[in-house]
Amino acid sequence: MMNHDQPSAKDQCGKIWSGIQLLKDTTENKHFLPTGLEGIDTLLGGGLRQGQLTEVTGPSSSGKTQVCLHSASLVAAKNMGVVMYLDTSNSFSASRVATIIDGSSDLFELGLDLQPKDMRLKSVMRSIICESVFDIFALFEVLHQLEVSLLNDKVNNGGSKMCLLIIDSISSLLAPIIGGKYPQGRSMMISVAMILKKLADEHNLSVLVTNHMVSAGNGAVKPALGESWRAVPHVRLVLSRECGSNICTATVLKHTLKASGRTAKFVVPS
């Protein structure tokens, strides 16, 4: 019987892995980028794994964008590498990034406590590239340009290479093309998936995307984009938020190394 919590010998991009390659990939090649949200980082064994695509899904106001902003802020503040943030709904906020950094318990460790607030924000924002992307065709263009730039080593900041790609939210770009208006919609969706996983694998990026929820019938909900997309992410988390509170719960729906169903609470600072 196949253990679905273990890496597949053949990933979604069609690449065949030997046992030695799988072991090396697990123990040597990949590192974790912290989200800055302790519960999520503990749940994932360290954070967002480089070389993998992580999906965060959940209903509206469950904390999906906050996970993206916290991840971008902390990775940039720690000088771990360049972050590209593809914003599909004007959700990116430099003032929110400033609030996250100012409220970080790692402020002293990062050496940011000695900087004036405006200098602190500028220092972090130098490592974050934010682009607005409002349809699937713009996404293809941005990803193509990114691939060329990475191959030519042009995405860097003072020698630090790109390490994190965020798309908030990918479902707002993909859902409109799989309803019927575009006959090739599902093929386009899988093309996006293959490009993202190729970028993650070949350039050792962590790819973080968000997805919304849709009705599953009988009052239940499920992640959008259907069965074709479900196989794409290496890791899937579903978020929920306690009513009138900033306490959220993350649940593992899928993970290459962890058991599904594990949960952890985390606080989204106000």
Rank of each mutant, 00 (worst) to 15 (best):
Lys181Trp: 03
Val238Cys: 06
Phe134Arg: 11
Leu208Lys: 01
Lys10Pro: 02
Thr256Ile: 11
Gly63Ala: 02
Ala224Ile: 05
Ile16Lys: 06
Cys68Asp: 04
Val192Asn: 09
Gly103Val: 12
Gly159Leu: 09
Ile247Leu: 11
Gln184Val: 08
Gln115Met: 14
Ile247His: 01
Leu48Trp: 01
Ser160Arg: 09
Glu147Asn: 14
Glu131His: 07
Val207Trp: 03
Gly180Trp: 10
Glu242Cys: 05
Ile16His: 05
Leu253Ala: 04
Leu150Arg: 08
Arg241Tyr: 00
Met194Ser: 09
Ser215Thr: 14
Leu23Asn: 10
Arg126Lys: 15
Val214Tyr: 04
His144Leu: 14
Leu139Glu: 10
Gln66Ile: 00
Ser240Gly: 15
Leu74Cys: 03
Pro269Glu: 10
Ser89Cys: 13
Leu151Ser: 15
Leu37Thr: 06
Tyr85Asp: 05
Ser215Gln: 14
Cys248Met: 10
Ile178Gly: 08
Ala175Glu: 08
Ser60Val: 11
Leu33Gly: 02
Phe137Asp: 15
Lys117Thr: 15
Ser91Asn: 12
Lys30Gln: 13
Ser8Cys: 11
His203Trp: 12
Trp229His: 10
Ser127Leu: 07
Leu208Met: 09
Leu53Val: 14
Leu43Arg: 07
Gly58Tyr: 06
Pro116Arg: 13
Lys30Cys: 15
Glu141Ile: 05
Pro34Asp: 01
Leu22Cys: 00
Lys197Tyr: 06
His4Val: 11
Glu202Asp: 14
His234Glu: 12
Val133Trp: 07
Ser206Asn: 01
Thr99Pro: 00
Ala76Glu: 07
Ala231Gln: 15
Ser149Cys: 08
Leu150Trp: 00
Val142Gly: 01
Ile129Gln: 07
Leu205Gln: 03
His31Asn: 14
Ile136Lys: 03
Thr263Arg: 15
Met213Asn: 03
Asp135Gly: 06
Tyr85Lys: 01
Ile177Met: 00
Asn204Arg: 06
